[in-house]
Design a protein around this nucleic acid. Structure first.
Lengths: 205, 205
DNA sequence: CTTTACATACCGACTAGTTGGTATGTCTAC
DNA sequence: GTAGACATACCAACTAGTCGGTATGTAAAG
């Protein structure tokens, strides 16, 4: 085996992701990525055939981490309680824990960044984003249906869109958090989301 | 006065806004705007001193319309009912009416588009976005405090972040709606938001 | 153990095309 | 005629991508 290039590749991707989240994909020239990562143009085009290929690598890595986070937290929630409603509340709570540690506004979500430049990417890249959101929907919907079976909702709610609400809260909170330059926005919104679920399914007294 | 240029100016801005929402600001070359608007480079630089000046004009117009929408709907809600909680629910309902008319996903929010390219804009431009979100927060917070006074919340909620939740829902729903290519997302999320407010303030029975 | 062969990792000058912006001229309404 | 509303030609800087070449590691033949 020749020398290992994964270090260089990772440094390029780290620098690129940070820049894309701050300036957008089209607003991030390759040269800027290179100087941030401390590598040369030759190294870049050795690892990525084109800028578009970098875009794909970035979103693929982002989504993989995101799905890992989803599964990890859902798995922990499922082990921490037997009741599906409580599992959901714990699941949100685990994200809340993370959110409360933020010292400055999150750099945002690469998916949203891409969506607001959708015209720059081919369908291949956008499909990764699309699939990820549908996986979140499916995973949360299944859990919501379990919860609804055990705890009949006190008001009528559409469960599929309630599942989507998780993604909506994250994406919306990222945007607002950046606008008002306040890292606490995400935690506060997650708390409202948890409240809502609790109120919807709480047994009427 | 010689010929009226407001028509040309508007056409440039309309074309630019559509393109920016689809491809981002950096991803939208002036030439593309020109061909879409059917005007020439001379016309463009007659109306805007620079591309950055176009960015400012776009967000200023967007925010002005947005604030008009806020005030208009809040005003209508306040005339349709005397109780502040009901006013809030009607307020959200009026946005819901609009959302239900959407035949395809909204083109999104220019503020979010700018935030995900924040590094491209000067503080002057970003401040317009910041101020707008704070105005929404202030307006809704005042109404929420009235509502809370008349209807003590059944659970503890932070009213300021609940006010922000309106913006969060819009921004988040725009993103998700675009990702899953479904115009119904916004209406569904607004309904959840309305439900939540109702559940929080509903008098316990 | 050393030489040869070969593969991956990387370098940096160069190019073809694009982009924001300018310079200058023309037309039109008053 | 003059001032604002355009049009056309043009430029300098930038950008993605290329290309010939080098460095460094593995593996097998001698």
């Amino acid at each position: 085996m020749p020398r290992d290039g994964t270090m260089t590749r990772t440094r390029i991707m780290d620098a690129a992701e940070a820049l894309v989240l701050e300036r957008g994909f089209a607003g991030t020239p390759i040269d800027e990525v290179l100087s941030q990562a401390g590598v040369t143009k030759g190294a870049f085009f050795h690892h990525f055939g084109s800028k578009q290929e970098l875009a794909h690598a970035l979103i693929a890595r982002f989504v993989e981490l995101d799905l890992g986070n989803l599964e990890s937290k859902m798995g922990r929630a499922e082990k921490l309680h037997r009741d599906p409603l409580q599992q959901l509340l714990i699941f949100v709570g685990l994200f809340l824990e993370d959110a409360e540690l933020l010292a400055e506004p999150s750099t945002g979500c690469l998916m949203a960044s891409y969506v607001y430049e959708a015209g720059m990417f081919d369908d291949h890249v956008l499909a990764v984003v699309h699939d990820n959101v549908l996986i979140w929907r499916k995973r949360l919907l299944a859990k919501l249906e379990e919860a609804a079976a055990a705890h009949p909702p006190r008001v009528h709610v559409d469960l599929e869109s309630l599942a989507d609400m998780a993604t909506v809260v994250f994406e919306g909170a990222f945007v607002v958090s950046k606008i008002v330059a306040d890292p606490a926005v995400l935690a506060a919104q997650l708390e409202h989301f948890r409240n809502y679920i609790e109120l919807v399914f709480s047994d009427p007294r």
